[in-house]
Nucleic acid binder design. Structure first.
Lengths: 337, 337
DNA sequence: ATGGGGACTGGAAGCGCTTCCAGAAATGTC
DNA sequence: GACATTTCTGGAAGCGCTTCCAGTCCCCAT
């Protein structure tokens, strides 16, 4: 680089020499291993301070076979959709836990083929000590790649048809049930649902929660439209449902964004919320508090998801056998239901 | 870990042995260095394939003194505010460039003291080959830490009172001028501004752009209120300004979120936009297209910022001397002005 | 005095790769 | 056919750390 480094960083050998001890001794004080005498320790510490010595991470990694780095791999159809605050929340959660350790976070946006092969490479080259994976699609090839790596792997959410050994997931099923039960408790009977993509585990689980709640209450599922978790998608689905079931009196939308779209359509159609139609969303994003009326929704903590993923990975790396987690969701009552 | 790795990954020595050549020869084909005969190359390639060999990243890093990792360090007062899509955009831009190389991205959320010392450590321990820094506050201690590391450093945005050697920045000054000039061209004369924090370079630059445009047009700056880039802050500032300058006929808000807040207050106050009051924002976030009326604003591409930062860092690592960049901003005309 | 056991120590062998170098082999030149 | 080049090769020395191991030293019970 153009901004020259004045001189090499000092090495452990130099520290040892200056302290008048062997390199092994110096290494021992560095890792504060047992069997180091007071004078040795002090001499080494003095030398370290005087030289401004910092152990070289790479060298240590080679010797210990531990890189001190864990990866978070994110997959999404559209790389630009990484901008979804969802991912940011995961990262915040993960970082919060890692901050307490001396592990660092490597971020892999692995949507493209190129990204996937980079990830494969990273794993096989033992570039990280473990990996957290958020693959949102059912049949994401990442899942296989990562499981084959022979490294500790924690999944965020579950792929559609397989149960990974270690995962952290939100209780989507339970949350959707909660939402639907709330609507039923309100006396609504003609409850429809707007689902996310049924090809994702999240979409499927939230839909199943709705169905189960309806059936448990002795009712047939009243109507559903598959959408894509977006506001525009939610609006389109709502139009469709109004058309097919003009007498609907409640809707459970599997995401807040879709709920927001639905709210807009309902208002345009002259239905008042919650009087004519009660609406419940899912996610409890910021948007939920800002709709008109404010959205009753199912809360899940994405930061907590990130945190638990990181904790689980740490445990795995430490050789423990943690158990997979399903994080609780809860109903937040606001104005729309 | 509990999921046992079946067996060690093969090493280059084993590849060499199997191919019947020396380790140096094998290394040469790996890095396709010159002076490798056809038969040697083929024998090694065959052995690699048969063994499923992958060069160990750490070992290579130690030998070459290049980790193949670059860091992106983000600093913010409130770590939770990392959820701002701004950062996600930067990451998307950076990743897009890195994807074409074989460098990986290490993400450091370094708001806390702990985060900062971790970063310091990482740099001094030569854990990365270079670093990109987004320090939003003027006197962020990160700036000093990073500059002292003796590693290639690229700044995103400029700290308040210093000009880093290598940076990429949006043309905040020019954009603010553009916005104000647009308002002037519309015949508005009583133009006020809502600024972001003046302790940040962005806040200061956008305010200066407003002032300069006013003065160039032969007018005194008509009124300003310092805010904090948020919607709530923008609303509060707008109230203040309406109070102090009831006859204002235009407002330049230094962020779209503040503009959205201002719009809300104006509408509550019975002022129609743009008839009574013209409004221009800054950033061109998604929210700008969704306000009522849609917001005329200054566009800047955060992804491009990320991309250019990454490119600049690559150049620096390659030993070149790139030149700092100021990315253009442009006016997007929508309904509010 | 004697031996047994802990507390320390430094030498040496790695970790898995790159790279320098001296020399062998192949090629070219007249 | 003699010589200078050029291509190719493997040995060996790193990169900067950890860790095993065989000792040395010292203290205390016998």
């Amino acid at each position: 680089m153009a901004a020259a480094t004045p001189r090499r960083q000092p090495t452990l050998d130099e520290v040892a020499e200056r302290a008048g001890v062997s390199r092994s001794a110096a290494s021992r004080v560095l890792n504060n291993a047992p069997y180091v005498s007071r004078p040795t320790r002090e001499a080494v510490e003095k030398a370290i301070k005087e030289l401004g010595y910092r152990p070289n991470r790479t060298a240590r990694a080679l010797a210990t076979r531990q890189t001190g780095i864990v990866a978070l791999a994110l997959s999404h159809d559209d790389p630009a959709l990484f901008a979804d605050p969802f991912f940011a929340q995961v990262i915040v959660g993960v970082s919060a836990v890692l901050e307490e350790t001396d592990l660092h976070l490597l971020l892999c946006l692995a949507s493209s083929g190129r990204g996937r092969s980079r990830l494969t490479n990273l794993l096989q080259a033992r570039g990280v000590d473990g990996i957290m994976l958020m693959a949102l699609h059912g049949d994401d090839p990442l899942t296989g790649i990562v499981d084959r790596a022979g490294l500790p792997v924690v999944h965020g959410g579950r792929p559609l048809h397989v149960e990974p050994q270690w995962y952290v997931d939100s209780d989507n099923l339970g949350g959707a049930r909660l939402a639907t039960e709330h609507l039923l408790a309100l006396g609504r009977t003609r409850i429809v649902t707007i689902t996310g993509q049924m090809a994702t585990q999240v979409g499927e689980a939230r839909h199943r929660g709705y169905r189960e709640a309806m059936i448990m209450a002795g009712r047939e599922p009243y109507g559903m439209a598959e959408s894509d978790f977006t506001e525009a998608g939610g609006a389109a689905a709502m139009k469709l449902l109004l058309d097919r079931h003009p007498d609907l009196d409640a809707v459970f939308a599997a995401s807040d964004k879709m709920a927001a779209g639905a709210l807009r359509v309902l208002s345009d159609a002259g239905r008042s919320v919650p009087a004519d139609v009660a609406v419940v969303g899912f996610d409890d994003l910021d948007v939920a508090a800002q709709t008109d009326p404010p959205l009753t929704t199912v809360h899940q903590s994405i930061q907590a998801l990130g945190r638990e993923m990181a904790r689980m990975l740490l445990a795995l790396i430490a050789g423990e056998s943690p158990t997979s987690l399903i994080l609780p969701t809860g109903l937040i009552r606001r104005g729309s239901a």
